[in-house]
Simulated assay, not measured.
Amino acid sequence: MRLSTVIMPIYRWSEGREIWRRAEDLGFHTAYTYDHLSWRSMRDAPWYGAVPTLAAAACATERIRLGTLVTSPNFRHPVTLAKELLTVDDVSDGRLTVGIGVGGSGFDATALGQEAWTPKERADRFDEFLPLLDKLLTQDATTERGEYYSAVEARNIPGCVQQPRVPFYVAATGPRGIRLAAEYGQGWITYGSPRGQDNTPVDQAPDVIAAQLAKLRTACEARGRDFASIDKVLMEGSTVEKPLESLDAFVDWAGTYQRLGITEIVIHWPVPGSVFEADLAVFEKIAAEGPAQLGH
């Protein structure tokens, strides 16, 4: 099992640079960042753009993979997003992973002046967004007209460093999203129950993930795709489980999901005074010793 982290884009780069470098030194497989314009309780605090942050992190590091967790159609268009991803993939020399999903109903959903989309409307848009982004990143020139997104002679030359394109990790819990993950994803991401952490008792949380994995397996079988070919990523922090309280707590928690078939765990870099508050010393001990105890 791989261990990764997500670093909030909240730091002036003079400070953030050292955090991203520390993540690499600790041996994390990937360091992700949230791709939002603002986020929940952090809306009125410092918050920087995900793509420029990843480009800067690519220049400050050498080995660690970098990624979005996750980008979405809420304020993105496939044509402009493809150009930005192509660039970060080049700057990082092929270390970019694109976590991508339908988006939510938070501040991003209305920041451009639009009405918030319903879950069905978000899914409808994602059905166009993801296939078009795939084409843009695998073709020199793309022309396609859709109901929601179009590209007219959009050029993406010379293409991605990673071939045929940067890997997509699709965040999905519903049937349409899971189908897209099976079709386009090199990885699949779950945050746990889509109903939120308060609705799932600790002892039932693994059952939720097991059911989602079963749906992903079914979707892969329907496409004739090997279920093992997709990375399965679990994001910490969206359930009532408390895996960052100690190394033992983490190993017990991660081991449970490893046995279910999760291949990558992502834990939040501690942010004091926030929902991501945690003991940094414990966090670093988990990073240093956790993978070995899980048999990485």
Rank of each mutant, 00 (worst) to 15 (best):
G106F: 08
S150Y: 04
E115P: 09
A109Q: 08
P167V: 09
A111P: 08
A141R: 15
D140V: 13
D93H: 15
T87G: 10
S105H: 12
A123M: 11
V79E: 02
C160T: 09
D93N: 13
E153Y: 10
A141Q: 13
V166I: 11
V70M: 03
S105W: 12
G159D: 11
T143D: 01
R155Q: 14
R145F: 15
D140E: 15
G104W: 09
G146W: 02
A123I: 14
V70D: 03
Q163T: 14
L133I: 00
A82Y: 04
A109R: 05
K120H: 13
G174Y: 06
L133V: 00
R125D: 06
A123E: 09
F107I: 15
W117S: 06
P164M: 08
D108G: 06
V91E: 03
T87N: 11
L81W: 07
Y169M: 11
T142Q: 00
L112F: 13
V166M: 05
Q162S: 09
G103Y: 09
E153P: 05
Q163P: 12
L133R: 00
Q163M: 14
L133W: 00
G101W: 04
V102L: 09
V98E: 01
D124F: 06
V152K: 06
G146N: 03
G101D: 04
L81D: 07
T143R: 02
R125S: 04
A141M: 13
Y169P: 07
N156H: 12
A151W: 00
F168M: 01
L112E: 12
P131C: 07
A172I: 02
R76P: 05
P175T: 15
P131D: 05
V70L: 05
L96F: 04
R145L: 13
S92E: 01
V79S: 06
P167I: 08
T68V: 10
T71D: 02
V161C: 10
V166L: 08
V166G: 02
W117N: 07
H77M: 12
F107D: 15
G174F: 05
A111T: 12
G94D: 10
G146Q: 03
A171Y: 03
G104Q: 06
